[in-house]
Design a protein around this nucleic acid. Structure first.
Length: 429
RNA sequence: GGGUCGGUGCCCGAGCGGCCAAUGGGAUCUGGCUGUAAACCAGACGGCUUUGCCUACGGGGGUUCAAAUCCCUCCCGGCCCA
């Protein structure tokens, strides 16, 4: 099984500059890079595809470069965005780059033992913040005409809209990214850039720049953007309620596991291919299980286990698994105290005074203070609609309902749930 | 700088003096059906001490018994001209 066959099976390739790249990658020994935007202190599931691509590259004996966009982040990529991006200040950006560096270092092999395919992490702020404007315009800008730049699909919609514009700053973004490729080619002999299919325009601009400046031909591979069954980009602001972050303190392993477990049937095969390193046979078998026994959701379970293991480790994946099983398929009041705490370990919790709970606290009040409702009005609505559960038993849909210690598990714990998924552990102090 | 069009709830977008917390769509949320899914159906969707009150239609000021709606001014954006 070589890389080309594997990538084709997994559907990782959307477009390439030429057919031979995949063959050459299969042979190993190339250097390829992917850029990561430091828009937040953590990467999220939307970047998992890119992370896996770099890893696959490395496993096949190539050198992966992860490029943190500390410089391009100062500008903001306008590709297919429908409005001007707010600028991030340099300090936040630097902090974000740091966070991302740390995360990426877990997924690639940066040790000397990797030899020629030892991964590299670079920050384009190193060159983008130091090059002079006139040098940039002469050495980079001179190679492109505005005519071809405005013809790019990625910016077209912004140019055609009559309510928002495209600032010169954002318009210049593609040149900065092109310059990155040139630098990586010159400094590290990098001959390949990968990215999502929305990056095609930016990437080929880089390919062109390298050719014009050095005469060398370098390559591009884009991968399809994964969408949910409803056509929305996954992992962006969608998901259950928020983005699914890779940082365990921002999105708990349990929440991530749940998110993946809830993947709809139609999207599961492609996610298994892109986000896991399972063998082709295993994947085919899981595909089959979706058709033959969808209610078992073996494929979703395998996906959730594999991804959480990859990101947070096997122990975290097992814990998330157990927590889900306990919370959704057993009666929670049968759990012993240690198990209950382990299961609820990921969920937010709060400590309440015994006296207060003894007297009974109104359900709406409790929902608001636990952060399960944004306002009393919303809390009242949840109760009225029957969306509130204590220890997995639905609360009477009475807005005056109160909750007291008599329901507590082990005389201290109340598992408060709102709707299907939002949990909170109330502890009597 | 000049002209012109526009800025409404999470987003899009109606309203153009009282019947407006503001039509409609999307998103989201809750419930039902299910498989902790999708689709579908029903409901909710500014806040509160909830038969009422408060805050909101870019900011400020004004006219009026009454303004998202009229006037002035400022800020922001699009387009055209310079």
């Amino acid at each position: 099984m070589n890389l080309r066959e594997d990538w084709q099976f997994r559907g990782l390739v959307h477009q390439t500059t030429d057919d031979t790249v995949l063959e050459r990658l299969s042979a190993g020994g190339l250097t390829g890079y992917i850029g990561f935007d430091p828009t937040a202190p953590s990467l999220h599931l939307g970047s998992l595809m890119q992370i896996c691509l770099l890893r696959r590259l490395q496993l096949a004996g190539n050198r992966p470069i992860a490029l943190a966009g500390g410089g391009t982040g100062l500008i903001g990529d306008p590709s297919f965005k429908d409005a001007e991006r707010p600028l991030l200040d340099a300090e936040r950006l630097a902090a974000n780059v740091e966070g991302i560096r740390e995360q990426l270092s877990q997924f690639l092999d940066f040790s000397a033992s990797a030899g020629a395919s030892k991964a590299l992490l670079v920050n384009n702020a190193d060159w983008l913040t130091t090059i002079s404007l006139t040098d940039f315009l002469r050495d980079v800008g001179k190679h492109f005409t505005v005519n071809q730049m405005i013809a790019k699909e990625a910016v077209r919609s912004r140019l055609e809209r009559d309510d928002v514009g495209l600032s010169f700053t954002e318009f210049s973004y593609m040149l900065l990214q092109a310059y990155d490729f040139l630098r990586l080619h010159q400094d590290y002999d990098c001959t390949l850039q990968l990215g999502g299919s929305d990056q095609w325009g930016n990437i080929v601009t880089g390919v062109e720049l390298v050719r014009k400046v050095t005469g060398h031909s370098v390559h591009a591979i884009t991968s399809p953007l994964l969408v949910n069954a409803d056509g929305k980009k996954m992992g962006k602001s969608e998901g259950t309620t928020q983005r699914v972050w890779l940082d365990a303190t921002m999105t708990s392993p349990f929440a991530m596991h749940q998110f993946l477990l809830n993947t709809d049937d139609a999207s599961t095969p492609s996610r298994l291919r892109c986000f896991t390193f399972l063998s082709h046979d295993e994947i085919r078998e899981l595909d089959e299980s979706i058709k033959s026994a969808p209610q078992e959701r073996r494929a979703q379970r395998a996906l959730a286990d594999a991804v959480v293991s990859f990101i947070h480790g096997e122990a975290a994946a097992r814990a998330a698994q157990r927590a889900g099983d306990a919370l959704f398929s057993e009666t929670i009041d049968e759990l012993d105290e240690a198990t209950l705490l382990a299961v609820m370990g990921d969920a937010p919790s709060s400590t309440w005074s015994r006296e207060e709970l003894g007297d009974g606290v109104s359900a709406t009040e409790m929902l608001v203070r636990c952060g399960l409702a944004k306002s009393r009005g919303e809390a009242r609505r949840f109760v009225e609609q029957g969306g509130v559960y204590v220890n997995n038993r639905r609360l009477a849909s009475d807005p005056e309902a109160t909750i007291d210690l008599s329901r507590a598990l082990h005389d201290r714990y109340l598992v408060l749930r709102r709707g299907r998924h939002e949990l909170h552990l109330v502890v009597a102090g």
